[in-house]
């Protein structure tokens, strides 16, 4: 599909969404004087389905009796920054940001998506299907594409693998870059701009179905153990009533025909109750990676560890 055309559609849809929301926000404001609930997303989730997100936001607004709008940002870091500053009320983030140490804590787990029966997913190390690479070692001195520097599957897991090998992870690949988007990591590998890449298994499988012309050009050479699926979180400052209501609506979507429609679009079974221990293996990976780092300091928000720039 043509990219510039998509961009145009994207922009016009975005415009429609925002205008629609404004109108709705105004009417609600005059009636009830309520601020919209702002729900943060990154492009890591699903990039192309803007109309879908609009309808989903409408669905949530109706259920909440309060306008809900999705706020998209390029990176997890930006989403986290918006959460900490109070500009977002809810967000769909990744396991890696979730397990980071925050002082003080400003988010609370509310739900974890259920994918193919389990709240789990994997990280895939992918290469071009025609390439000779069979293991991560084959990618030494090659070009590697990461998704987001705060992505578990798209960055932490390959970092962990390199740390495990005991190699200098900065020097292992000839060159690395961030696409900030799992779909674009697939694209970079499919077009051989990168020799290998790390992606979310859920997104990769989603693309196999909805964007096969690119996705089928890639092949998985390594699958990670199961990780907890990227969770939905609420900002601690949001009132209990709203969080409780949102959690109920989201976890009840699989019992509602309209909700099931959105779950089908997302290829998810539903949203389940939080199980914080799901992210324990991610915590372990963080610890391993931290241990392998020359400085060895704790990885927390506010420290300049992953700037998105590799030197």
């Amino acid at each position: 599909m043509n990219k510039s055309w998509l961009t145009a559609i994207w922009l016009s849809v975005l415009l429609c969404i925002s205008m629609g929301h404004n109108t709705r926000a105004e009417s609600l404001e005059t009636a009830e004087a309520v601020e919209p609930i702002r729900f943060g997303l990154t492009a890591v989730v699903v990039r192309e389905n803007l109309r879908f997100l609009d309808q989903w936001a409408h669905y949530l607004s109706k259920k909440m009796s309060q306008p809900v709008e999705f706020v998209r940002r390029r990176s997890y870091r930006e989403v986290m920054d918006l959460l900490v500053s109070g500009s977002l009320d809810f967000a769909w983030i990744c396991g890696f940001p979730y397990v980071q140490n925050r002082d003080p804590e400003f988010i609370k787990l509310i739900s974890i998506p259920v994918y193919r029966g389990n709240p789990l997913y994997h990280s895939f190390i992918i290469v071009h299907k025609d390439s000779p690479y069979q293991t991560l070692d084959d990618l030494q001195d090659k070009v590697f594409a990461y998704s987001d520097p705060d992505s578990n599957s798209g960055y932490l897991y390959p970092q962990y693998l390199l740390a495990e090998k005991g190699t200098n992870k900065e020097a292992f690949f000839r060159q690395t870059f961030f696409t900030f988007n799992h779909a674009e990591t697939v694209e970079a590998v499919a077009e051989r701009f990168a020799d290998g890449g790390a992606v979310d298994s859920y997104i990769w499988e989603y693309l196999q179905e909805f964007s096969p012309e690119l996705a089928t050009k890639t092949r998985v050479i390594k699958q990670s153990p199961a990780f907890g699926f990227p969770p939905l979180v609420a900002r601690l400052g949001v009132d209990f009533e709203t969080v409780w209501q949102m959690k109920n609506i989201i976890t009840g979507m699989d019992k509602d025909p309209d909700g099931r429609k959105f779950l089908e679009g997302l290829k998810l079974d539903g949203f389940g109750d939080p199980r914080p221990d799901l992210f324990d293996n991610i915590r372990e990976m963080v610890a391993s990676v931290r241990a392998a780092q020359p400085g060895g300091g704790p990885v927390t928000y506010g420290t300049e560890v992953n700037t998105g720039i590799t030197e």
């Binding site: 060159q175 870059f177 030197e311």
Partner: peptide, 9 residues
Amino acid sequence: LQNDSWSLY
């Protein structure tokens, strides 16, 4: 300057 190869591409 930001070594953003993907954006260049």
